[in-house]
């Protein structure tokens, strides 16, 4: 199985290698020409990555009358678009649904994936290969081709138009990656650490919670980022399973700016820009947690 041969590698920025080794810190020197070139190229690339989104912001600020103008910047900046988009749509309720769905499914993924990944990494139980195969296969299915089945199922369950349905679905389709990544991380943590803890009277569950989990923090954070972003941006399931405005996520709400005869590009992009902000905030927030998780790991 692929999972066994692939060690934990997907980490977040500041992550140390799983064995806790860190690169030697070099003394700061004055900028060398090579560093200047590297920095210039990197800054240029960063700009290229941001420009499409800057263009979205600019479009969001265009008055409707200037949408078809082939100009770089509008003559007038319609800051009121952001107010209008909020007033003329259900963004508030959409945002609430999306937060619940993204937060809820992330939590559910962690609750379900951590024990499964931990056990799979530590115990050679029967059916382990089948389980790992199941996980890999799940990764290959996309909700787009399963929509009718999902709709039928949740209709029969009487769970259409429910935030919890979207939580379940988003969790299920992101579970595979989380299990995969966490199994790799748990495998890389020396088993002796846990055994010591278990001799100290902690059960396997306790050892997992107090010893292994903190060490696997970068893996957990990676799983969190993945699930959260995927659930935040999920569209087709939200569209199919939620047909009333009160239970529609942001991505579906934004869709309503694409009308039968017109597309309100400025509102569409204004809403999209609003939708990106919370994800950026999450990154800022979680960044600190990575660092503290790492320090905790290195102390032990």
């Amino acid at each position: 199985m692929a999972q066994q041969t692939i060690p934990a590698t997907v980490g977040t920025l500041e992550s140390a290698s799983p064995d806790g080794r860190r690169r030697p810190v070099r003394p700061r020197r004055a900028l060398r020409p090579r560093t200047v070139v590297v920095a210039a190229v990197a800054w240029l690339i960063a700009a290229v990555f941001l420009l499409p989104y800057l263009q979205m912001v600019i479009t969001a600020l265009r008055p409707a009358s200037e949408l078809r103008d082939a100009t770089y910047l509008p003559d007038h900046f319609a800051w009121s678009n952001f107010v209008d988009v909020w007033r003329e749509s259900n963004l508030g309720s959409n945002l609430r649904v999306t937060l619940l769905v993204a937060g809820g499914s992330t939590l559910l993924v962690l609750l379900v994936a951590i024990p499964a990944a931990y056990y799979t990494a530590r115990v050679k139980y029967r059916g382990r290969k089948v389980f790992l195969l199941l996980v890999l296969v799940t990764q290959m299915f996309q909700p787009t081709s399963l929509l009718v089945g999902l709709y039928r199922e949740f209709y029969q369950l009487g769970m259409l138009n429910s935030v919890w349905t979207l939580v379940l679905c988003n969790a299920a389709f992101n579970l595979a990656f989380a299990i995969w990544i966490l199994t790799a991380y748990f495998s890389a943590i020396p088993v002796q650490l846990e055994e010591a803890a278990m001799i100290d009277g902690l059960g396997r569950g306790g050892a997992l919670l107090r010893v292994t989990l903190p060490l696997a923090m970068p893996g957990v954070v990676t799983a969190v980022i993945f699930t959260f972003i995927a659930a935040w941006n999920e569209f087709v399931m939200g569209l199919t399973l939620s047909t009333v405005p009160e239970s529609q996520p942001l991505t579906v709400g934004i869709n309503s700016f694409i009308g039968n005869y017109t597309v309100q590009w400025n509102y569409l992009f204004a809403a999209s820009v609003i939708a990106i902000v919370p994800v950026v905030v999450l990154f800022a927030f979680i960044e600190r947690h990575v660092v503290s998780g790492l320090t905790a790991g290195s102390v032990k």
Binding site: S89, G158, G253, S256, G259, N260
Partner: peptide, 27 residues
């Protein structure tokens, strides 16, 4: 959890399901 989709209820009220196209371009 199945069932419960039929639209009749104990107190005798009937629920009609109306599905309609959206002619607007914002909420």
């Amino acid at each position: 959890c199945g069932g419960g989709g039929a639209g009749g209820s104990a107190d005798g009220t009937v629920t009609l399901k109306l599905v309609a196209a959206d002619y607007g371009d914002k909420a």
